[in-house]
């Protein structure tokens, strides 16, 4: 019975959604804002990657908010999983296999490097802070899998996280102080396609990369924590 009702609701929802969907002009030239981004982007921002310039500059405020959401998710999870007295269980963990251990030790620095590359080159190539951070966090996930006796310090991750967040806000405030606009791209645009170009994008992406990396690693670390 309930399933039938649910299906009816879904059908009605689908029926409704077809109306706006059929009106959206797919496949035509992008209108208005999107067109502006595509055509004016490079001259306005100096970033080769349009997506990045939209994410960090035009809609940088949203990105700040999204970073905050991730921060909240990490903090919220930590607060719910918080244990008044941390007691690591004495249960001896099963060793992971030699292949996994060796492979992870080998891959870990490379993964970090790749992650760093992704967020440092956010304004030039596809990718950016979020992606880079996620890659870095995946490196930590591997460490958690392979070297089970290692404990990642959540305190240190938290410090990195906070510093990165503060950097983002600070960059915004510097923009406010120098140019009168919060998150203003106060650095020079530089030459297109160079590493040091596109104003504040690299700075912010580095901050985001650190932040996302440490947050995701922190989340995994929190979930891995054992008690008796």
């Amino acid at each position: 019975m309930r399933k039938i009702i649910a299906l009816i609701f879904l059908a009605i929802l689908l029926w409704g959604i077809t109306k706006p969907v059929s009106r959206i002009p797919f496949g035509t030239n992008k209108i208005k804002v999107a067109e502006h981004y595509i055509t004016k982007d490079i001259t306005e921002t100096g970033a080769a990657n349009v997506v990045t310039s939209v994410v960090v500059l035009y809609r940088g405020f949203d990105t700040l908010g999204e970073v905050t959401i991730l921060f909240i998710a990490a903090i919220g999870l930590a607060s719910i999983l918080y244990l008044p007295r941390k007691k690591v269980s004495d249960e001896v963990l099963e060793e992971s296999s030699l292949i996994l251990r060796t492979g992870c030790r080998f891959l870990f620095p490379l993964i970090l490097l790749f992650g760093a590359y992704i967020f440092v080159h956010g304004h030039l190539t596809p990718g950016g802070g979020f992606q880079g951070g996620a890659i870095i966090a995946s490196g930590f996930a591997l460490i958690f899998l392979s070297c089970r006796e290692r404990v990642v310090s959540t305190v240190k991750l938290g410090v990195v996280e906070s510093l990165a967040g503060m950097t983002f806000v600070a960059v915004g405030l510097i923009g406010l102080a120098t140019g009168g606009y919060f998150l203003l791209s106060f650095l020079p645009k530089g030459t297109l396609n160079m590493l040091f170009s596109a104003g504040i994008i690299p700075v912010i992406y580095v901050a985001i990369g650190f932040k996302v990396g440490s947050e995701l690693a922190g989340i995994i670390g929190n979930l891995m924590e054992r008690t008796q």
Binding site: F9, I12, L13, W15, G16
Partner: peptide, 20 residues
């Protein structure tokens, strides 16, 4: 929880049905 979610969908479905 199931019925709560159903309430939300009910409201949306009622709106859509009334219009369409």
């Amino acid at each position: 929880l199931g019925s709560y979610v159903m309430y939300i969908m009910l409201f949306l479905a009622v709106l859509i049905t009334m219009r369409l």
